[in-house]
Design a protein around this nucleic acid. Structure first.
Lengths: 109, 109
DNA sequence: CGAACGTTCCACCTTCAGGTTGAATATCGC
DNA sequence: GCGATATTCAACCTGAAGGTGGAACGTTCG
């Protein structure tokens, strides 16, 4: 019934340490699945699944060359996530500011 | 076996539209559980659970006054999340810059 | 061609997320 | 004290997340 938004997928993908490690690795340059899996304490299959989650979130692009699949980072969805967080922080601090003004108003009376 | 990090909890809490709605509401001021639940298309119990997830992530604080529980936003965990995202974006764009320099170097030869 | 390699697909298991309903608990107001 | 109100707790269900191992598939290379 419910369509999951792009933002849902992005944040969900980021909410896992293994996937954040993969992204951190990819931010230094493209890599194959096996290369990404090598330092991780799990099966190649599990890593393959994590990559699929990252692809669903459009955080990672796949480039197949022969039998090798080269993964690379696409940082654009991060912009949307950062935007949401910044918006919340802005509204929050704005509210604090108004609250502060209100309290000073009280004091003057 | 695995200890979940603060960042995991934060991002996981954010990766749900209902919880983001709750946070957006709270960024405009504190509210009781029932007030938060009113506009949401689910039972009060479900909302209570969502709030617990937000509390685990330390994004929300609870202030009990009589039978009413007043929830308020604590934006500090958002800073950590924003930091991680910004770090990734920085490394990613730095890599693109270096790649660009490299290509220009190639051209000059 | 045939063996090795890189990756995915499939079947399975266990844990957890998100929702439900119904009962329990605590407080308020008459 | 009693009924209404605010919230949680407990049990349960369904589906998805995250892991496993093994079979399948396409590609490379001797």
């Amino acid at each position: 019934m419910e369509r999951s938004s792009q933002l849902d997928h992005t944040l969900l993908a980021l909410a896992d340490p293994t996937r954040r490690r993969i992204l951190a690795r990819l931010s230094k340059g493209e890599a194959r699945v096996t290369e990404l899996a090598a330092p991780l304490p799990m099966s190649l299959n599990a890593v393959s699944k994590h990559i699929k989650v990252l692809e669903r979130a459009k955080l990672v692009r796949r480039n197949v060359r022969g039998r090798d699949h080269y993964l690379s980072l696409d940082a654009r969805p991060l912009d949307q996530a950062a935007l949401w967080i910044e918006t919340q922080r802005a509204q929050w601090s704005q509210r604090l500011r108004k609250l502060d003004e209100l309290l000073q108003e009280e004091d003057r009376k």
